[in-house]
Lab assay of single mutants.
Amino acid sequence: RPFRVCDHKRTIRKGLTAATRQELLAKALETLLLNGVLTLVLEEDGTAVDSEDFFQLLEDDTCLMVLQSGQSWS
C-alpha cells in the first residue's frame, strides 16, 4: 500500500509502499537516512500509529511522520 512519509521537520518527503507497519518503518529508516528507534505518527495531528491493527485501517496515501527518539510532532 502507498504512503507519504516525512521527517519531523517536514523537509524530506518520500512516497513509500509497505504492507505492514514494521515494513514501513524499515523502509523509512533506510530512505530517510534515520537511525535508532522510530515512532510513526499521522502528519496531520500527531496521532501515534503504534499498532498493526490501526496501521491496517489507514487509507492509501496517508501522510505519516517518522520521529526519532527525543523528537516530537509539531
Rank of each mutant, 00 (worst) to 15 (best):
R1F: 03
P2I: 15
F3M: 14
R4N: 15
R4H: 10
R4G: 05
V5T: 04
V5Y: 03
V5A: 14
V5H: 00
C6S: 06
C6T: 13
C6K: 03
C6E: 00
C6R: 03
C6W: 04
D7G: 06
D7T: 05
D7C: 02
D7M: 01
H8L: 05
H8R: 14
K9F: 06
K9T: 11
K9V: 05
R10S: 03
R10L: 03
T11M: 15
T11Q: 08
I12D: 12
I12T: 13
I12F: 12
I12N: 09
I12S: 10
R13F: 15
R13I: 15
R13P: 06
R13G: 09
K14T: 13
K14L: 09
G15H: 11
G15L: 14
L16G: 00
L16E: 01
L16F: 09
L16S: 03
T17V: 13
A18Q: 01
A18R: 04
A19T: 10
A19M: 15
T20R: 04
T20G: 05
T20I: 04
T20E: 01
T20D: 13
R21V: 04
R21F: 07
Q22T: 11
Q22D: 09
Q22L: 07
E23P: 01
E23Q: 09
E23Y: 00
E23L: 02
E23F: 02
L24I: 11
L24N: 00
L24Y: 00
L25F: 05
L25W: 04
L25E: 06
L25S: 02
L25R: 03
A26H: 12
A26K: 10
A26S: 14
A26R: 08
K27N: 11
A28L: 05
A28G: 06
A28K: 00
L29N: 15
L29M: 15
L29P: 15
L29F: 14
L29S: 15
E30L: 05
E30M: 12
T31K: 12
T31D: 11
T31M: 15
L32P: 07
L32F: 14
L33R: 11
L33T: 13
L33H: 15
L34H: 02
L34Y: 09
L34C: 14
L34W: 10
L34T: 07
L34F: 09
N35E: 15
N35L: 05
N35W: 05
N35V: 07
N35I: 09
N35R: 12
N35G: 07
G36M: 01
G36I: 01
V37N: 15
V37Y: 10
L38F: 05
L38A: 11
L38K: 04
T39E: 13
T39I: 07
T39P: 07
T39M: 11
T39A: 09
L40R: 03
L40D: 00
V41W: 05
V41S: 03
V41G: 12
V41F: 03
L42Y: 06
L42W: 01
L42N: 08
L42C: 10
E43Q: 00
E43S: 03
E43P: 02
E43C: 01
E44C: 10
E44A: 15
E44S: 13
E44H: 15
D45N: 12
G46L: 01
G46Y: 03
G46N: 01
G46F: 01
T47M: 09
T47D: 03
T47V: 07
A48S: 13
A48G: 10
A48D: 06
A48E: 11
V49Q: 00
V49C: 07
D50T: 08
D50C: 08
D50H: 08
D50S: 09
S51M: 03
S51W: 01
E52K: 00
E52H: 01
E52V: 04
E52Q: 07
D53Q: 12
D53S: 11
D53I: 06
F54G: 13
F54N: 08
F54M: 15
F55H: 02
F55K: 00
F55Y: 03
F55N: 00
F55A: 08
F55T: 02
Q56I: 07
Q56N: 15
L57W: 07
L57V: 11
L58R: 02
L58W: 01
L58A: 01
E59T: 13
E59F: 04
D60Y: 08
D60V: 09
D61E: 14
D61Y: 06
D61H: 11
D61K: 09
T62F: 03
C63A: 09
C63Y: 08
C63M: 13
C63L: 11
L64F: 13
L64G: 02
M65L: 01
M65T: 01
M65P: 05
M65K: 01
V66A: 07
V66L: 08
V66H: 07
V66S: 01
L67F: 02
L67A: 01
L67P: 01
L67H: 03
L67M: 05
L67N: 05
Q68S: 13
Q68P: 05
Q68H: 06
S69N: 14
S69V: 10
S69D: 10
S69W: 08
G70E: 10
G70C: 05
G70P: 05
G70Y: 03
G70R: 06
G70S: 06
G70K: 07
Q71N: 05
Q71H: 04
Q71S: 04
Q71M: 06
Q71R: 02
Q71V: 02
S72W: 06
S72R: 11
S72N: 07
S72M: 11
W73I: 04
W73Y: 07
S74F: 06
S74N: 12
S74L: 06
